[in-house]
Design a protein around this nucleic acid. Structure first.
Lengths: 156, 156
DNA sequence: TTGAGTTTTCTCGAATTCGAGATAGTTTCG
DNA sequence: CGAAACTATCTCGAATTCGAGAAAACTCAA
């Protein structure tokens, strides 16, 4: 997303750079772990939502993993081929499709997820719990307000 | 990178999710701005380092934009075709190549960069300056320690 | 109820990124 | 010095992501 450079004295610029680096570094930990089990991080992302929330429409899962619809279809295809997820019609909305974890998928997640959580704790052990919470509060606020204004940019 | 879900009561998990969302949201602002000038964010990233640091070896620029070497070559090719950057031999190290901004590149950046900074300030106006600084301190610490332990993961 | 506007999902081609070499040059140190 | 290990860059094919439609279904106000 562009990092770098003469961040200098602009707090926004500096936060942006720092955010990108941290996201990248922590992401490498997460990716390395998940890859060991033959999953891409986006695949893991979908399995994780389903594991915790139960069956969901594709669009709902998509929102969580921050991919466009085309990419999501691609990832779901892969999960279906691996028999980790099944597409079923959505009775509530005939446009939609429900994603359901197969028992194979659930078994895999119950093995992987605890490892995943441990990996993240390890990756973040530079911060105390209190610091993590303070960081999360600030960064959440940042994300929420930034997301709320995305379309006000060069609007019409 | 996988976001989502039952973050629940694990501060590390929660911070990870929040980080991903914020990075995505702010990134959309940045990308939208830069795209208006016909640049991809990775292209902008390289121009920005050169703009602020002067000529640099490819590998140096690469470190800043968080891409692999193959992707970096691809991006530099595009910048060269657009006459924004020139590859020149590196007298210090005959393996390497120096990237130099052309005058066209410098002119472009002197126009775009201030806008870019303004865009980021706007994207982040949900936080006060003091909050940005506190966030940056925490997130920097997170990034630095996470980066320092990447290879200790499932090592040998 | 009808139709304009929105939402969900998928397809497809193009753009981007990765990752594994290959090559050439550098460094280290016995 | 010379071998081994490392670094910088590029190439190339494969994997991934995007983005723009298209088709079907839903919403809701007049």
């Amino acid at each position: 997303m562009s990092q770098n450079g003469a961040s200098g004295r602009d707090p926004a610029l500096e936060l942006w750079i720092v955010l990108a680096r941290a996201f990248d570094a922590v992401g490498r930990h997460a990716r390395a772990q998940v890859t060991q089990h033959g999953l891409a991080d986006t695949e893991f992302g979908i399995l994780e939502v389903l594991y915790h929330k139960g069956p969901l429409p594709v669009c709902e899962a998509q929102r969580r993993i921050l991919l466009q619809s085309g990419s999501t279809a691609y990832v779901v295809d892969k999960l279906e081929k691996k028999k980790l997820v099944r597409r079923t019609p959505n009775p509530r909305d005939k446009r939609g499709t429900l994603l359901v974890l197969t028992s194979k998928g659930r078994a895999l997640m119950s093995k992987i997820f605890p490892e995943h959580a441990a990996t993240l704790r390890r990756a973040m052990r530079g911060l105390s719990e209190a610091e993590m919470k303070r960081a999360a509060t600030l960064v959440r606020k940042l994300g929420v307000t930034a997301a709320a204004t995305i379309l006000d940019e060069i609007p019409g």
